[in-house]
Every structure is written in structure tokens, then in C-alpha cells.
Design a protein around this nucleic acid. Sequence first.
DNA 1: CCCGTACTACGATGCCTATCGTACGAGTCG
DNA 2: CGACTCGTACGATAGGCATCGTAGTACGGG
Lengths: 117, 117
Amino acid sequence: MTSPAVSSRDLPHPTREEIRLEGVLHALSDPMRMRIVRELAAVGDELSCSHFDLPVTKSTTTHHFRVLRESGVLQQVYRGTAKMNGLRKDDLDGLFPGLLDCLLDAAGRQAARLDGA
Amino acid sequence: MTSPAVSSRDLPHPTREEIRLEGVLHALSDPMRMRIVRELAAVGDELSCSHFDLPVTKSTTTHHFRVLRESGVLQQVYRGTAKMNGLRKDDLDGLFPGLLDCLLDAAGRQAARLDGA
DNA sequence: CCCGTACTACGATGCCTATCGTACGAGTCG
DNA sequence: CGACTCGTACGATAGGCATCGTAGTACGGG
């Protein structure tokens, strides 16, 4: 029960230079995907796909994670059977300083507002 | 040649409370629409639809302006035959402080980067 | 009143996408 | 090995959307 090795299954990621703002905004314009990113940011660590309990099937969950990865918002890596997901905060901050925090803050404000707080 | 009156033709706008982050992000995830918003922010004033010289037909331009209005990014009003467009900066800043400036900055950085500056 | 300008409405088209279900592959543990 | 878990692949479906062209409406000026 040592820490599980990173699998050789490779997942295509855009390089930092390939990340496009419109792609990031499109990825985050879906509530399900914004929810994933918010949870990831709140934890501040990598999370497995199965950690998320989304109101959609697993196929659809896989789809959303792929969109987030291909737009450059997440990095994904297999560890054993789990696929770990992490925010690409450094890359996003490097390209668009402050944007991620701003978006997360905006999402938090809207969530608080709509929850009748 | 007095200043042209505001027409009675009414255009439906969301109230501030009805504006949704996902709608705003979706609206700005289209390069044509981001271009419109950037130009509007740079001028800092209202502009008529015809001021913009976009590489699409006028039908498509109308469509993009409607998406921006219905998502709450723009306010539109007829003045004579012209339809004037203004950023709803106060409403957006009230809901999501700093977000608009952050997005504009991000778009500016990407434009500078891709223009080989 | 007629014309030109500014913008819209509508229909068509082709693509993208969110969702599902089922069948499958990769890895772990007994 | 065999069973179980995690996640993928593929096909289907339904809806959304960016784009166009054409025809039409609203407004202002001669």
C-alpha cells in the first residue's frame, strides 16, 4: 500500500501558451464545470473524479472533466484507478493575473446571493 | 438637428438581479462579442451598432448584440435610427466587483501576446 | 410623400454540446 | 485468476448556436 504510481496512460493537455481565454470562459460558463472548479479551489488540493457527487451520470462527468482539461483549467493524472484533478492555478495566473480569483469570487457571490443568504 | 429622441421601441433587458455569471461568461466566450466589449470599454462611452466593423454580416452582428444585451453585459437604446450600446459597468461591478476589469485585462494580455508583441 | 439608412425578423444550415446508456479497459485486492 | 471499482469510448438524441441571405420595419431628411 505504497503511494500508487502514476499510470502510463497519458492525457493530452494544452501547454500554457496554448490556453485561450475564450476557451477558459466557455469552460466555466457551464454551472456543472464551475461547480467542479469551485470545489477544487476550496479544497486547494487535487481531488479524484469520484470525489464529486454531481447530478449527472458518470459519462457526462467524464465529458465535463475533459472540457476543463482541454481548455487548460485542470491538469489530470492517473494514480492507480483514480484520476486526480488539480487546478492549473500557476499557468492561469501567469497568463491572466488575478482572473481565476476574480471568477471564483464572482461565483461565490452569486451562490451566496441565490441561496437566499 | 437637435439630439435625437429616444424611441419608444423597447428592448428587453435583464434586471441587475437577473444577471447570471454563467450568462456573462458565455457571452464573453465568443471572440466577436469580446471584441465588441473591449472596444466599448476602450472608448468608455456608448457606440452605435454601425460603428463596429466586424467580419460578419449585419444579421450576425445583430445576433451578437442581442446576446450581450440579454446576458446583461450591455444596455441598448434606440436614438433615432441608431441603436446605442453601453457597457453595464455599474451593474456588473455591483454584482461581481472587479470581474469586468479583470476580464478586460485578460483579453488585452492575450491580444498583445497573440499579436506577437 | 418617397427614399435612404439602420437595424430586425425569419428561415435555413451546419456544427457543437450536454446528456444518456451500454459496453469496455485499466488497476487493485482477495 | 476473478471480482470489483474507476473511469473511457462510442453511439444516439435533442437542443443550442454562429452564420448567412432575404425581406421587412422604423426613423429622418429632402
